[in-house]
Design a protein around this nucleic acid. Sequence first.
DNA 1: GCTAAATCTCTTAGTGACTAAGATATATAT
DNA 2: ATATATATCTTAGTCACTAAGAGATTTAGC
Lengths: 157, 157
Amino acid sequence: MRRSSAQGVLYGQTVANVAGIANSDLECMDILYLEGRVTAGRLAEVTGLTTGAITGVIDRLEKAGLVRRERDEADRRKVFITVVPEAIDKLSQFYVPMQQAMEKVCNGYSDEELRLLLRFANEGYKGVVAATEALKGLLDTPPEKRPALKLKTFRQP
Amino acid sequence: MRRSSAQGVLYGQTVANVAGIANSDLECMDILYLEGRVTAGRLAEVTGLTTGAITGVIDRLEKAGLVRRERDEADRRKVFITVVPEAIDKLSQFYVPMQQAMEKVCNGYSDEELRLLLRFANEGYKGVVAATEALKGLLDTPPEKRPALKLKTFRQP
DNA sequence: GCTAAATCTCTTAGTGACTAAGATATATAT
DNA sequence: ATATATATCTTAGTCACTAAGAGATTTAGC
């Protein structure tokens, strides 16, 4: 899973290259696609970038015609970012190789097995979110007070 | 899986922050850990960075006392990068939250189910590698000649 | 054996995304 | 009505990255 994750990062880098946008710009497009209409601040929160950096991201994405800024009429300080419909078409083609590969892999499993994999994927996601929170908590703990757990490492043959 | 992957990227960013090294420096440490002793050129190849950038990465990692440069005696142009043993201890603590979370998730599965998950993880990894290659191939194909496959998208309820 | 081409890492100059700090505009609380 | 909080943007400066090429070593051709 670690290997897949590392390789997944590389896939994303390649997509960004091919699409001609920066890496974090693509990451934001991904978040926008998954979460829908979000504010600039929410993007900063999720990506871990500063709001200043997000301004730059949105500027570039807007210039590339991939997103639009929309002021919230209820709270005029907020700026909602929405994906331009055509952007999905422009970008989705670069995920075709990945989807084909995954479809091929998934074909090797029964419906019941796929349900198990889906369950694991969901629980795994929640686990990663929890782990990220826990790690951030570690930041506030002085190094000498950190739980010094032995890491069991497994190496595949 | 996409969500997990995106969140995994964030976990890595957080680790890099906490460890006080750059993001790609950590990515290289990961590769070094997985592949063992590798050359500078191999790092460039795997990360997708230029050799010039890798020189910088290794400089910083060496300065931080995490890796060592070793000239290959057989071919003196090559420089092997090796991880300093203590580096593993320094960094592995930051993966404790992730491992705990994953262990917790895995505890919910029988040995047989875990074998299925392992098989999927292996096949999935190969799939991602294949997809990356295919995407790079797309780079050399003119846009109008690209296979315009309909992307089936699934949204979880 | 000697020259030319290839391979591998490093160097240099320039670019661009990032952070920190603060400005601006709007909203909420006392 | 004033102060404080919130949300985004601006600015100056920093740092990792690329492109191009230099330096060092190996391999191939004659």
